[in-house]
Nucleic acid binder design. Sequence first.
DNA 1: CCTTGACGTCAAGTGAACTTGATGTAGTCG
DNA 2: CGACTACATCAAGTTCACTTGACGTCAAGG
Lengths: 149, 149
Amino acid sequence: MPQVPEGVVWLKPGQVAERAGVAVSTLHYYESLGLITSRRTSGNRREYRRDVLRVIAFIRASQRVGISLERIKDALDQLPDEDVPTKKDWARISRQWRDSLNDRIEHLTALRDRFSDCIGCGCLSLKACPYSNPDDVLGTTGQGPLRFP
Amino acid sequence: MPQVPEGVVWLKPGQVAERAGVAVSTLHYYESLGLITSRRTSGNRREYRRDVLRVIAFIRASQRVGISLERIKDALDQLPDEDVPTKKDWARISRQWRDSLNDRIEHLTALRDRFSDCIGCGCLSLKACPYSNPDDVLGTTGQGPLRFP
DNA sequence: CCTTGACGTCAAGTGAACTTGATGTAGTCG
DNA sequence: CGACTACATCAAGTTCACTTGACGTCAAGG
């Protein structure tokens, strides 16, 4: 009794929601933004390819480190849906993404190390640190990206 | 003509806003949340200590990597405002903060490496990767922290 | 066949992090 | 002294990322 059309197992919304650890409404929302896709049954129910789990995991992992859904969509959009992109395209896109992640890792590391420094310097206070040279503002003044990039 | 009371230079809202790269309204907002403090002049104008710049830089840097203002406040609250805490308290707090940052760095690195793997495997597609073993969901299923911690 | 529950759409609500607007005051400069 | 700008308060608006509610539909079990 095979219910499988062509070798691919399609998942129902509830299954995806449970496995991915998100609400069904979130799936609707992501779909409305074009982050994930689904097909419909004859009865208008959504069906998801199994790999949607991977995409959702990617989304959640990215969000977790402060990347917006818009940016995530930018990345996902550049990935192929059905057809295969050139290796060149792929390499370029993946390089961009990695660069952005590396950038974030750097900032995070700097933040951690700065915090550690404040312990090391003996002043025991970030708020009232006598070490405070006026314009050591971690690059927030001037032209730097101040909002979430 | 010294306008300085006791050797500390107090900054006006506009100066802080410009140097820190945030809007004056943001200063009000942060103050309303207890993230920063100010004193008032006889004319009810706010005045900030110079080190507020450092605090704001800390806030922005933390936000940038996805930490909420509430969490940031937790960290700042544990720092001394005027009086000195015990070294033990300080060490404990800083350890917590570092752990949380290290955790984020790990997640970020994992995300980057996973992305790289997907290039390495040759499938050229994350969305339709035939590599896809069903439950390789980066730990989002089950008990893991799904929202921003 | 009928109930039950998972699913569909669409509008509206929520919380976080700010911003904008309305309205009034303070201080500085020509 | 008068104008102008920066600042004060407070309420309300905005954006992002969802969630909730209202209401109707589909399908599987008893």
